[in-house]
Structure formats: C-alpha cells, structure tokens
C-alpha cells in the first residue's frame, strides 16, 4: 500500500514559502526526513519553526505561496488537514485546545476510526478501542482520570502536553510534528513526555521536534538538527549542533549565516 521505497524520504520539503496575512514567515525551507529518523528544528523566537510544523499539518491561518512538500509520495499541501491526519501526519500542538463537553474517549475514537476508514478498515468496536486506549495510557504514563474528563478542560500545561503525547500514541502517526512540546514542562513531565516519544519511535515513522531549547534533546536523541532563521534552514548537523547552540546562543548562528 505504501508508495515509499527505501530510496524516497518520508517527507521532502522544497523551497517552501508561507505567510500569515501580509507577513512572510517561511522563505524557502528545504528539509528531508526519512522513516526511522528524529529531526530537531531549532531557532530563536519568530524564526518560523512553529509555522513550519503548522503549515505541514495544514493550519488554515497560513498561506503557502511557493514550494512543495511531498509526504509518502503525495502532494501534502494540496490535502485538507483531516486527510493529512488520516495519512499519518500528527501535530502535537504548542497550545492544545480545551474541548469542554467533548469526552477524550469519544474524541480519540473518532480520530482512530476516521483513519481506519481512510485505509478501508472497519471502525473499532468500543471494546477494542477501550483496550487500545488502556494500553496507550499505560505506555505514556498518563493519569487514567484525565481520559475520563473532557479533552484538556481545566488541565495544567503539563497535563495538556502529556495528553498530546497520548493522542499521538493512540493515533500512531508516521510523521509526528511536535511543536514546542517541551515548553512549560517541569523536569518530570519532560522526562515522561520524552519517554513517550522514544517508546513510539520505530523504523517506520519519523519525528520532527520543534524546540527553542536543547534540554529535550537530552532525552530524545535526534539524528539531525536544523537551525531555522528568518524562515530558512541556515545550518544542519548532528546532535552536536544542538549543544553548540546551547553554548553559543542563536546570535552566533545569525552572524555565521550572514557571512554565507
């Protein structure tokens, strides 16, 4: 069923330009992500890293003005957000939305069933979904009580981020985009969230971590690190690049980039 061969990346972004209203935010992003890889996108505030993740997931606030993104052989940017999700793209929100009155169970089952239908599979029975959810709740070490409540309603910041990881675990994406999932987490929550991400890593899926800080990368070891500045990737490297950034700050990159 999959159109991917070993030679093709899971995600290939070329010359991506995007704007919000009159504001150009992405100015030609190139990025290739292979199955089995973890990429970290780092950069100062306003560099466009969250925009990149959101554009790939289809957030309607942005307009793509040029470039393309091929995911699993498909023109990702031509697809509605829900189709992207059903094809295995997942965005962990920087600010997860509270859904008063929407039970987590119902919400997650609808997502799982939408994806299954897209792939020509039957909806899960309530019993099978119960089992799946229980298993994932244990996997990501989330308080089972949170699943019984309305989605994110009255959750603390850390609980919301954990809940994003639970959703990711349940939906089993092939391409997970984590938008500053580490921000606002205390050290315990950061460990739990990171453990969840690590447990979900496999040779078939890929993760793109968008982060301002290096500290999450102590827990999730990336294969590649990219630095985004003014809407373009100005430098790529291995995990050591993250440490260098932590040490020297983003000004160093900015200066280095201006000479290139």
């Amino acid at each position: 069923m999959t159109k991917m061969t070993n030679n093709n990346p899971l995600l290939s972004v070329r010359g991506l330009h995007a704007s919000a209203g009159d504001l150009e935010i992405l100015n030609g992003v190139d990025l290739e992500v292979n199955a089995g890889e973890v990429h970290a996108i780092m950069g100062p505030n306003g560099s466009g890293k969250s925009t990149l993740a959101n554009v790939l997931a289809g957030r309607p606030d942005y307009t793509v003005t040029a470039g393309q993104a091929i995911y699993d052989g498909e023109d990702l940017l031509a697809l509605e957000p829900e189709i992207r999700a059903r094809m295995g793209v997942f965005l962990a929100f920087q600010y997860p939305v509270e859904l008063p009155g929407v039970r987590a169970w119902q919400f997650l089952k609808a997502g799982v069933d939408a994806r299954r239908q897209h792939h020509g599979e039957e909806e899960l029975s309530a019993r099978d979904f119960d089992r799946l959810l229980r298993e994932k709740v244990q996997m990501v070490e989330i308080d089972p009580e949170l699943v019984r409540r309305a989605v994110n309603e009255g959750f603390s910041g850390g609980e919301k981020k954990r809940n994003e990881i639970l959703q990711m675990a349940v939906l089993e994406p092939r391409l997970a985009l984590l938008d500053e999932t580490d921000s606002g987490l205390d050290i315990d929550a950061l460990r739990i969230v990171s453990d969840g991400v690590n447990k979900l890593r496999s040779q078939d899926n890929a993760t793109v971590l968008v982060t301002h800080y290096q500290r999450m990368l102590n827990y999730i070891r990336p294969d590649k690190v990219h630095v985004l500045l003014d809407g373009r990737i100005v430098r790529s490297g291995g995990p050591e690049l993250a440490l260098e950034l932590e040490e020297k700050g983003y000004d160093w990159i900015r200066e280095a980039a201006s000479y290139e």
Partner: peptide, 14 residues
C-alpha cells in the same frame, strides 16, 4: 477556528 483545526488535525472532517 483554532478549535476546529484541532479536531481536523486528528482526522475528523469539518
């Protein structure tokens, strides 16, 4: 709109 996008990003259509 943000709320609607949150649900769509999980696979639910409009």
């Amino acid at each position: 709109a943000q709320t609607l996008f949150y649900l769509r990003s999980r696979g639910l259509d409009l």
